[in-house]
Amino acid sequence: MGIVEKSRLKSPWILHYDCSSCNGCDIEILACLTPYYDIERFGILSKGNPKHSDVLLVTGGVNHRNKTVLKNLYDQMPAPKVVIAIGACGSTGGIFHNCYNILGGADKIVPVDVYVPGCPPRPEAIIDGVVKALDKLKHLQNGTWKEPETGPIVVETAVGAKPAPAAKYANAAPAPTLNSQPTNKEA
């Protein structure tokens, strides 16, 4: 890894754009900058300018008016760039799923690299999200990036016998689809 690649991971400047969120996520992003979380530790600065930024944080669902703004901001950022969708609305539309002016998450307009769940996510989760995005950038630079799996994460709980210690989401095997027949694991 060359010095430029290393520096890229050490100095991600963020651009925050509020699509149509409720302010909750925006305030939490601002809280990340403040002494308690202090993301400047990782060299992260909040730049209000797309031409200076590397990471785009999108909060809130995209609506008919700001989809062009979001697209413009994305196009104005010089490569390499990363997009992080913050919160339930930024990822899928969240609680505004049945509002007439919400198209959905940010991924309807721009390619999203990392989704941060939560409504709003805690600053810790946002830091996790940025770290994860940098991890992806690192793998992309090294050529070791593997496309993430997209199937559902299934956790099976046994019934009818003694309940086995339930495996949590971490090492569960993905199943093909939600509607497939349950695997009949008879011993």
């Binding site: 992080i84 990822s91 899928t92 690299d113 990392v114 989704y115 941060v116 769940p117 939560g118 996510p121 805690r122 810790e124 989760a125 996790d128 999200g129 994860k132 992806k136 993430p148 799996e149 997209t150 199937g151 559902p152 994460i153 299934v154 956790v155 099976e156 709980t157 046994a158 019934v159 009818g160 016998a161 086995a164 989401y169 993905p174 199943a175 939600l178 349950p182 695997t183 009949n184 694991k185 008879e186 011993a187």
Partner: peptide, 25 residues
Amino acid sequence: QYNEPCYAKRTHVAAQVVKCAQTPP
């Protein structure tokens, strides 16, 4: 604990599986 940030949209499925199959589902 909050849910981890993720690279792809994946649903979390919790399923009941009958282990000692007296009555198949």
